[in-house]
């Protein structure tokens, strides 16, 4: 059934591309010129931040809190305990973790909290994910200027649905992953992953009289543990 659809498509495709080419004849460029023109585009905006490492982390925390995210700081050694403390405080019992999650995190938490239920996502069904109350994931980057956390959905960050359906999302972000500006993120990840999610606070809407309401469809609670590793 696909074949006729494909071949029928060739006609509008050619027509549209021809129309576009005709419309831009005045500025037609060969590949080399195009590359040159692209490279010469003005980019005088701020690319590199000016803050000290400490001030950068402070800004990240401040911005996250402005979005109503909960932030705690910890050291690499104390991380499993900090995770356990967050889980205990969440008042939830069933948690998900992506397959790349260090087992130490889960063991400590399970040992400290009775009745805690951990499920590792080895291809869980959507319904099972939907049943879980919370999820713990790593992240790829933090951007202090806008309080944004970036997920590339690696094995420790989980597939997209994992950090979407549960109402409570705990992100483990390392200090060395925090940059100050958005251009610094792009400088760090020049070969992007095929899937990227930029998260800036919990899901929100202002569609009713511009009143900001936290939590529409995505997780209503975003918690962040900032790990003070040596950057």
């Amino acid at each position: 059934m696909k074949a006729p659809l494909q071949s029928r498509q060739q006609i509008p495709r050619q027509r549209i591309l021809e129309r576009i080419r005709a419309a831009t004849l005045d500025c037609a460029q060969d590949p080399a010129m195009r590359e040159e023109a692209y490279a010469a585009l003005p980019r005088a905006y701020t690319r590199h931040g000016q803050l000290s490492a400490e001030a950068r982390l402070k800004l990240m925390i401040e911005r996250l809190r402005e979005y109503d995210a909960e932030v705690v700081e910890t050291t690499p050694e104390a991380l499993p305990d900090a995770i356990a403390a967050q889980l205990a405080a969440s008042d939830k019992h069933s948690f998900l973790a992506p397959p790349g999650t260090p087992s130490e995190w889960m063991v400590t938490a399970a040992w400290k909290i009775s009745g805690l239920e951990w499920t590792i996502d080895h291809g869980l069904a959507t319904a099972e994910i939907e049943q879980s109350e919370g999820v713990v994931t790593a992240a790829s980057c933090g951007i202090a200027d806008s309080g944004t956390i970036v997920l590339h959905h690696s094995a420790s960050e989980g597939r997209r649905v994992l950090s979407l359906l549960p109402d409570w999302h705990l992100i483990i972000l390392r200090a060395s992953q925090v940059v100050e500006t958005l251009p610094e993120y792009f400088a760090r990840f020049q070969q992007p992953s095929g899937l990227v999610t930029w998260i800036s606070g919990p899901s929100a809407t202002a569609d009713i009289e511009m009143t900001r309401i936290k939590g529409v469809h995505g997780p209503r609670f975003l918690n962040v543990i900032l790990v003070r590793d040596k950057s």
């Binding site: 649905v161 930029w198 998260i199």
Partner: peptide, 24 residues
């Protein structure tokens, strides 16, 4: 985001590339 809703960044931006096995 700054122009549209007056936020430093909107809560979610998603980027995807074709089809990813096991995700979406």
């Amino acid at each position: 985001a700054r122009s549209a809703t007056g936020e430093r960044m909107n809560p979610y931006t998603s980027l995807w590339t074709g089809v990813t096995a096991g995700d979406g």
